[in-house]
Simulated scan of single mutants.
Amino acid sequence: MKIILDIPDGMVCGFLNGVVGTRSGLTMVTYSLGSNDLHDGAEIKLPREEQKQ
């Protein structure tokens, strides 16, 4: 899924909340987005744990 956001200038952080299905049922997840993430043309892939190598 791809989501495009129009975020106002001056925003220094944000949070994306969602619900995922797990073996034990539904679980709420929250991803924090810092000022390094919030810039023009940024592409953020979540969950971040999958990016680690």
Rank of each mutant, 00 (worst) to 15 (best):
M1P: 08
K2C: 06
K2V: 15
I3T: 03
I3S: 02
I3G: 00
I4Y: 06
I4K: 15
I4N: 14
I4V: 14
L5P: 04
L5R: 11
L5C: 13
L5N: 13
D6N: 15
D6K: 13
I7M: 09
I7E: 04
I7K: 11
P8Y: 04
D9T: 07
D9G: 08
D9Y: 11
D9F: 08
D9M: 04
D9K: 01
G10F: 08
G10T: 08
V12A: 11
V12R: 01
C13G: 13
C13M: 12
G14K: 01
G14I: 05
G14L: 00
G14N: 04
G14V: 02
L16N: 02
L16C: 04
L16H: 04
L16G: 03
N17L: 00
N17V: 00
G18F: 02
V19K: 12
V20W: 01
G21F: 07
T22R: 14
T22G: 14
R23A: 09
R23F: 05
S24K: 15
G25F: 06
G25C: 08
G25V: 10
G25S: 10
G25D: 09
L26D: 03
T27F: 06
M28S: 12
M28H: 03
M28E: 12
V29S: 00
T30P: 02
T30F: 01
T30V: 14
T30I: 12
L33I: 07
L33D: 10
L33T: 08
G34P: 06
G34E: 13
S35D: 14
S35M: 13
S35H: 11
S35T: 13
S35G: 06
N36E: 14
N36F: 05
D37I: 05
L38I: 15
L38K: 03
H39I: 12
H39C: 10
H39W: 05
D40L: 08
G41D: 10
G41H: 11
G41L: 10
G41V: 05
A42Y: 06
A42N: 09
E43L: 13
E43W: 01
E43S: 10
E43D: 03
I44N: 09
I44H: 03
I44K: 09
K45Q: 13
L46A: 01
P47V: 06
P47E: 08
R48K: 13
E49P: 00
E49S: 06
Q51A: 07
K52M: 03
K52R: 01
Q53Y: 10
